[in-house]
Design a binder for these strands. Structure first.
Lengths: 258, 258
DNA sequence: CGACCTTTTGATTGGCGTCAAAATCTGTGG
DNA sequence: CCACAGATTTTGACGCCAATCAAAAGGTCG
């Protein structure tokens, strides 16, 4: 699976008439009055094809993005071996590309999995915006704290869990994140979500080969814990999976700073 | 290696006469005027023995801490297997225990490695403080962004690097973090730092056994890349180690949001 | 000095990687 | 709507990195 490059990212931009709505996640907890004051920050909506790179590790990139729709990944590559480590699956509402450093050189790459719609925002305007609007700053603290929490769980899976435990974990985590973050999903009724990532992606997220992921996934299917094909994932035995994975749904729920 | 518990954490507190200085890290970028206004927030200084638990995963804990001196770890435990995953080595200037959730139940445990001095701060006062002082909020965003960045590197090591690469990485990372964060270290002159963690700790950080860590560390010594004994670590061949680890010093440098 | 860590070494095992090839799926253009 | 190419999944054989088990040697601290 190779990423197309998306060099002229901002060439295909179209105006987003009411982008404040689209960046619902970042602005979620901001009162209407303040939102209005943030309106001046005109944002650009971008549509990016499936499996296309958004920005690349080591390169300058002056925008951050809020995901409006679609799945993506952020990742790093070991240059010695060429192996990829997926750091996070990106879903609607997530922020992509925010990092604090002097140079603006990206510490990781980002790419889409499915066709995605992002709202871009100039990195340079973040600080003034946060200074003007403390609610936004608090919201960003929340989002970053959640990033840390997800990354801790992810690290735990990669470092200390078996292949089966890790895979069960990642499936449950994504199932719940989709439930909370993807609009118009019916996962509560059907226990099924759209699942556009490959087994190779799963492997790259937890440090396994696609071959081994396949063996474990088949085992989970044989045990009637999941059903997984045609880009759909069904959770058949949530209780058992949570036990195996040591997962609980409150590991993925966002909370405002209280 | 077991942690003592530190049940009566706040029993042994002593007043910290000028704690604003001690929480230098969190308040680093805050102008003097604002610092004064934050003075009202009386903080408590706590001294904790070596290898003692500060708080535990799954339990309520109402304080966050800024580390003034000493080494510590934050970690999670796989209950199935009892295996520990160290999420982060904690050094002076680091924040410990900040997370956003409703319940106040800690998502991970924290403990000291050496005797440490911490400044405690009531979790409940964070939000009002940040609302009053936007510079603090920005500073917290920076710190959390750095947490994410370190965790990404850590995940990369655990997931996709070989034992040798990961161990080289963790050694270089700690070497530079000590250089930047520990006061009165002479690492620039001597290439040597105090190194109080065990090989078991290193293994728990990247998902290896102490036995295997030992074999690799000995190999690194045999190759004259490091020198490591008596709780001291010397970097003999930084260039080579950085190549093996794919490490660069700007992976650990803190930058204010610009 | 004695108990307990921590490091070190050796022997053996096993989980997951590697290599390879077939089967299946997916999207695209004719 | 079919055909084809490329991506993805699946299966099998085999190998290796790191785990496990065990035990000795060296450090550390009360």
């Amino acid at each position: 699976m190779n990423f197309n490059t998306h060099e002229k990212l901002h060439a295909s931009e179209t105006k987003c008439s009411d982008c404040a709505i689209r960046v619902a996640s970042l602005f979620k907890s901001v009162s209407n009055g303040n939102l209005a004051s943030a309106e001046e920050l005109r944002k650009e909506q971008v549509r990016i094809p499936a499996r296309t790179r958004i920005f690349q590790e080591g390169e300058m990139h002056d925008y951050i993005y809020t995901v409006y729709s679609g799945w993506g990944v952020i990742y790093k590559t070991v240059s010695n071996s060429g192996k990829r480590q997926i750091l996070r699956f990106v879903l609607p509402g997530d922020l992509v590309g925010f990092q604090t450093n002097v140079s603006g050189v990206m510490a990781h790459s980002a790419g889409t999995v499915t066709e995605s719609v992002l709202c871009s925002f100039p990195r340079a305007k973040i600080k003034p915006m946060l200074e003007k609007n403390s609610e936004l700053a608090l919201r960003l603290v929340d989002m970053k704290a959640r990033d840390v929490s997800l990354c801790h769980n992810h690290l735990m899976a990669a470092g200390r869990k078996t292949a089966k435990e890790s895979i069960a974990f990642i499936l449950m985590e994504l199932f719940y994140r989709v439930q909370y973050q993807v609009p118009n999903n019916d996962s509560k009724a059907t226990n099924t979500i759209d699942f556009p990532i490959t087994q190779e992606d799963i492997g790259d997220a937890i440090g396994l080969t696609n071959v081994h992921v396949n063996r474990v996934v088949k085992e989970l299917m044989k045990e009637k814990l999941i059903l997984c094909n045609k880009k759909k994932l069904t959770i058949l035995n949530e209780k058992k999976l949570c036990e195996i994975a040591e997962f609980s749904s409150d590991m993925v729920v966002t909370h405002p700073l209280a």
